[in-house]
Protein backbone atom coordinates (compact mmCIF):
# COMPACT_ATOMS: atom_id res chain seq x y z
CA UNK A 1 0.00 0.00 0.00
CA UNK A 2 1.19 3.51 -0.82
CA UNK A 3 0.14 6.68 0.91
CA UNK A 4 0.71 10.40 0.93
CA UNK A 5 -0.41 13.51 2.81
CA UNK A 6 -1.01 16.72 0.89
CA UNK A 7 -2.31 20.22 1.53
CA UNK A 8 -4.97 21.44 -0.88
CA UNK A 9 -4.08 24.98 -1.83
CA UNK A 10 -6.73 25.42 -4.49
CA UNK A 11 -8.78 28.43 -3.52
CA UNK A 12 -12.13 26.75 -3.32
CA UNK A 13 -10.89 23.37 -2.23
CA UNK A 14 -11.78 20.02 -3.67
CA UNK A 15 -15.36 20.30 -4.73
CA UNK A 16 -17.72 20.11 -7.65
CA UNK A 17 -15.77 20.34 -10.88
CA UNK A 18 -12.26 19.90 -9.42
CA UNK A 19 -13.67 17.02 -7.40
CA UNK A 20 -15.28 15.48 -10.49
CA UNK A 21 -11.92 15.70 -12.25
CA UNK A 22 -10.15 14.18 -9.28
CA UNK A 23 -12.59 11.29 -9.29
CA UNK A 24 -12.03 10.77 -13.01
CA UNK A 25 -8.28 10.70 -12.40
CA UNK A 26 -8.67 8.16 -9.58
CA UNK A 27 -10.93 5.93 -11.66
CA UNK A 28 -8.19 5.34 -14.18
CA UNK A 29 -6.48 3.03 -11.71
CA UNK A 30 -7.38 -0.47 -10.62
CA UNK A 31 -6.05 0.04 -7.09
CA UNK A 32 -8.40 0.70 -4.23
CA UNK A 33 -7.93 4.41 -3.55
CA UNK A 34 -9.16 6.10 -0.39
CA UNK A 35 -9.01 9.64 0.87
CA UNK A 36 -9.64 11.32 4.22
CA UNK A 37 -9.74 14.94 5.31
CA UNK A 38 -7.22 15.22 8.17
CA UNK A 39 -8.13 18.81 8.97
CA UNK A 40 -11.81 18.10 9.53
CA UNK A 41 -11.21 14.60 10.78
CA UNK A 42 -13.67 11.83 10.07
CA UNK A 43 -14.20 9.15 7.50
CA UNK A 44 -11.82 7.55 5.07
CA UNK A 45 -13.81 7.31 1.86
CA UNK A 46 -13.45 6.09 -1.68
CA UNK A 47 -11.59 8.56 -3.90
CA UNK A 48 -13.51 7.16 -6.84
CA UNK A 49 -16.83 8.57 -5.66
CA UNK A 50 -17.86 12.18 -6.14
CA UNK A 51 -20.55 11.87 -3.50
CA UNK A 52 -17.99 10.68 -0.93
CA UNK A 53 -15.59 13.42 -1.88
CA UNK A 54 -18.19 16.13 -1.47
CA UNK A 55 -19.14 14.70 1.92
CA UNK A 56 -15.62 15.11 3.33
CA UNK A 57 -15.77 18.78 2.20
CA UNK A 58 -12.12 19.52 1.50
CA UNK A 59 -11.67 23.29 1.60
CA UNK A 60 -8.66 25.45 0.84
CA UNK A 61 -5.80 24.81 3.29
CA UNK A 62 -7.10 21.40 4.35
CA UNK A 63 -4.76 18.44 4.59
CA UNK A 64 -5.80 15.22 2.92
CA UNK A 65 -4.43 11.70 3.32
CA UNK A 66 -4.58 9.46 0.27
CA UNK A 67 -3.92 5.72 0.17
CA UNK A 68 -3.72 3.38 -2.81
CA UNK A 69 -3.68 -0.39 -2.61
CA UNK A 70 -3.27 -2.56 -5.68
CA UNK A 71 -1.23 -3.36 -8.76
CA UNK A 72 -0.85 0.24 -9.90
CA UNK A 73 -0.64 1.91 -6.48
CA UNK A 74 2.62 3.75 -7.28
CA UNK A 75 1.26 5.34 -10.42
CA UNK A 76 -2.02 6.18 -8.69
CA UNK A 77 -0.37 8.08 -5.84
CA UNK A 78 1.90 9.84 -8.27
CA UNK A 79 -0.93 10.91 -10.56
CA UNK A 80 -3.20 12.13 -7.75
CA UNK A 81 -0.36 14.02 -6.08
CA UNK A 82 0.37 15.63 -9.41
CA UNK A 83 -3.31 16.52 -9.72
CA UNK A 84 -3.56 18.19 -6.32
CA UNK A 85 -0.19 19.91 -6.42
CA UNK A 86 -0.02 21.02 -10.03
CA UNK A 87 -3.23 20.71 -12.01
CA UNK A 88 -5.27 22.43 -9.36
CA UNK A 89 -2.67 25.08 -8.66
CA UNK A 90 -2.76 26.19 -12.26
CA UNK A 91 -6.27 27.42 -11.66
CA UNK A 92 -5.95 30.52 -9.52
Amino acid sequence: MKETTLTVKHKVGLHARPAAKFVKAAKQFDSKIQISNITRGGDRVSAKSLVSLVKIAVACGHQVHITADGSDEDQAIEALTEFIVNTMEEQP
Binding site: A16, A19, V23, S46, K48, S49, L50, S52
Partner: peptide, 19 residues
Protein backbone atom coordinates in the same frame (compact mmCIF):
# COMPACT_ATOMS: atom_id res chain seq x y z
CA UNK B 1 -17.31 27.49 -18.78
CA UNK B 2 -17.70 27.36 -15.00
CA UNK B 3 -21.45 27.45 -15.38
CA UNK B 4 -21.28 24.02 -16.96
CA UNK B 5 -20.09 22.73 -13.66
CA UNK B 6 -23.51 21.63 -12.43
CA UNK B 7 -24.08 19.66 -15.61
CA UNK B 8 -20.68 17.97 -15.35
CA UNK B 9 -21.25 17.09 -11.74
CA UNK B 10 -24.66 15.61 -12.52
CA UNK B 11 -23.25 13.52 -15.32
CA UNK B 12 -20.52 12.21 -13.05
CA UNK B 13 -23.10 11.31 -10.39
CA UNK B 14 -24.94 8.99 -12.76
CA UNK B 15 -22.03 6.56 -12.59
CA UNK B 16 -20.94 7.33 -9.02
CA UNK B 17 -20.54 4.37 -6.67
CA UNK B 18 -22.40 6.24 -3.95
CA UNK B 19 -25.23 7.34 -6.23
Amino acid sequence: ADNFEILDVQKELLSDEEY
